[in-house]
Simulated assay, not measured.
Amino acid sequence: MIDALTVAVGVTALLLAAWCGFAAYRDEPTKDWHFIGMAVVSVLALAQLVIGLVQLAGGRSPDESTAVFLAYLIGAVACVPATGFMSLSERTRWGSVTVAAGAVVLAVLEVRLYDIWGGGHG
């Protein structure tokens, strides 16, 4: 995996979490700008999925289980879009809280992906 991309996904996820958390603090639902932020984070996670699949297809493998690695990659891609869709049905501050929580979960998944792949050894 590419360490810089893992860091980029994690950092942008935390920035999204802070932004949506601030919106929740201000008693605001997610707005169009938040969805643009979610799209940026999601595209980075999707790029990470593609790179991970290409590396697996090329014969490289994680230090831990390949199945666990794939599950984390898929979960990372799905995390922010899932909470974004949920926020559409909850047009209150709680929609913003949901996205903020999902973005924090994504950042944690990134740390775990880094560990599963080999902690920078790959």
Rank of each mutant, 00 (worst) to 15 (best):
58 G>H: 04
34 H>G: 11
75 G>A: 11
41 V>F: 09
81 P>C: 01
118 G>A: 14
101 A>T: 02
47 A>V: 08
48 Q>V: 00
111 V>K: 01
24 A>K: 04
78 A>G: 15
69 F>T: 00
5 L>D: 04
79 C>E: 10
71 A>T: 08
62 P>N: 01
13 A>R: 07
60 R>F: 02
44 L>P: 00
83 T>P: 07
106 L>K: 03
88 L>G: 09
18 A>E: 15
111 V>Y: 13
51 I>K: 10
68 V>Y: 14
66 T>D: 04
80 V>W: 10
1 M>L: 15
113 L>E: 01
11 V>P: 01
69 F>S: 02
7 V>N: 01
55 Q>I: 02
50 V>H: 05
49 L>K: 12
41 V>K: 00
65 S>L: 05
48 Q>H: 10
33 W>Q: 06
23 A>L: 10
52 G>A: 06
81 P>K: 00
50 V>I: 12
4 A>P: 03
82 A>P: 03
91 R>Q: 14
95 G>L: 06
11 V>D: 15
3 D>L: 08
22 F>C: 01
100 A>D: 01
16 L>I: 11
18 A>Y: 13
103 A>P: 06
81 P>D: 05
117 W>S: 12
84 G>M: 14
80 V>E: 05
23 A>I: 09
29 P>V: 04
32 D>R: 15
86 M>L: 14
29 P>S: 13
68 V>E: 15
40 V>H: 04
62 P>K: 01
74 I>K: 00
10 G>F: 02
98 T>S: 15
109 L>H: 03
66 T>F: 00
30 T>W: 15
109 L>D: 06
33 W>M: 02
29 P>L: 13
43 V>M: 05
41 V>Q: 01
111 V>T: 02
14 L>H: 12
88 L>E: 12
88 L>H: 07
43 V>H: 08
75 G>E: 04
29 P>Y: 12
111 V>S: 02
23 A>Y: 12
14 L>T: 10
116 I>M: 03
18 A>H: 07
103 A>G: 04
72 Y>V: 03
55 Q>E: 10
19 W>R: 05
117 W>H: 06
93 R>D: 13
10 G>K: 00
122 G>D: 13
71 A>Q: 07
5 L>R: 09
18 A>C: 05
16 L>E: 09
6 T>A: 04
93 R>T: 13
119 G>H: 13
8 A>L: 15
76 A>G: 11
5 L>G: 06
50 V>E: 08
111 V>C: 04
54 V>D: 08
63 D>M: 02
17 A>I: 02
1 M>F: 05
68 V>W: 13
72 Y>H: 07
110 E>T: 09
12 T>W: 12
41 V>N: 01
102 G>V: 07
23 A>P: 09
36 I>H: 07
106 L>N: 06
26 R>E: 12
95 G>Y: 08
45 A>D: 00
